[in-house]
Design a protein around this nucleic acid. Structure first.
Lengths: 178, 178
DNA sequence: GGGGACATGTAAGTGGTTACATGATTGC
DNA sequence: GCAATCATGTAACCACTTACATGTCCCC
């Protein structure tokens, strides 16, 4: 989208928790952070180089087995400052949520369009599946009340995602009933 | 984002309603379709050229005053086919909603982080404003029950947007109360 | 007369995707 | 042995943004 560049912040944020390799970061995007952000590994490695060039992270070499070298990155003072300064800042730009399904609905003017039912049913199937997945994640990541306090931000996000998806499903159900 | 290219579909969809100039399309993105999709005029003009090159739209010249030429585009049979084929298709890719605020929350681990309250308050202000705006739009675009049937898809989208925004505001309120 | 809307483009830069590329390691 | 995972990168392409650019029309 050539949008506001937030990937550096995510990488700094993740590396700030503990030193990581590019591959570790890739894994992070496949699990928890992948629920609300996506990026390809090629982009991660490019951005890491850039951050290192800026002196916001620094690398050390580790090994996987005897021959495979892996590069650990840790955050520097400069990187910490950038991260903190971002966390302290406000942004009044609300993201526009580009949803292909919603777009199709827009062009289906009539309530009686024969395509409407199939489209709704398919979306209902997809969204219900997503909702179940999110609920499973919640159970897995926060199995009890105390665990929520360990990473309150993450708990809030999952909670929010579940409510949003639930709303989506409810909305689709209501339309299907009509 | 170099994402799935949906702009051609939007342009075809809008031109399919009635013939339009690039400027008309730009205006559409500033009003109703702008609630859930954004694009710059430079991109619109580029995409129009491409669509015309493909033979999916065709242009005729009109005038604004005596000297300013404007180019009207109307959809061709080929363009209609592409549009219909898209409307008939399914996509099982759910968009990842990239929300900067949510990202910040993720990196604020602690419930007691002093930045949390300000961040929440600011987001609450923004989201409430957006919600009010959407409610106003709904009143304006669909002033009565009958009008909903004229463009059922658009009604559904606005309804959905309001519910989603309402959920966002409720969620923020709950956190602020804690 | 001037400012905002009307109207249409080009050019440079960048974030992101897709595809290509390579090789070791681990567990079955 | 072989498949999946670990691990890191480059290159081509593309959608999109930002900035630059130009000129008319209409109303106050």
């Amino acid at each position: 989208m050539a949008q506001k560049n937030l990937l550096p912040m995510i990488l700094l944020g993740l590396i700030n928790i503990e030193k990581k390799t590019g591959y570790d970061l890739k894994k992070d995007f496949e699990t928890e952070i992948g629920e609300f952000w996506s990026v390809k590994h090629s982009q991660i490695y490019l951005e890491l180089k850039r951050l290192e060039g800026n002196g916001e992270i620094k690398s050390t070499t580790g090994f996987y087995g005897n021959k495979i070298e892996k590069t650990y990155y840790e955050i520097t003072k400069k990187g910490k400052e950038r991260l903190e300064s971002w966390l302290d800042s406000y942004s009044d730009i609300l993201n526009v949520n580009k949803d292909e399904f919603v777009l199709k609905l827009y062009f289906i003017k009539s309530r009686k369009d024969p395509r409407l039912q199939d489209l709704l049913q398919e979306q209902y199937r997809l969204r219900s599946k997503k909702l179940e997945h999110l609920k499973e994640r919640m159970k897995f990541v926060f199995p009890n009340k105390e665990s929520k306090n360990d990473n309150f931000g993450h708990y809030l996000i999952l909670d929010h995602a579940i409510r949003r998806e639930q709303e989506y499903v409810n909305w689709l159900e209501e339309i299907l009933e009509k």
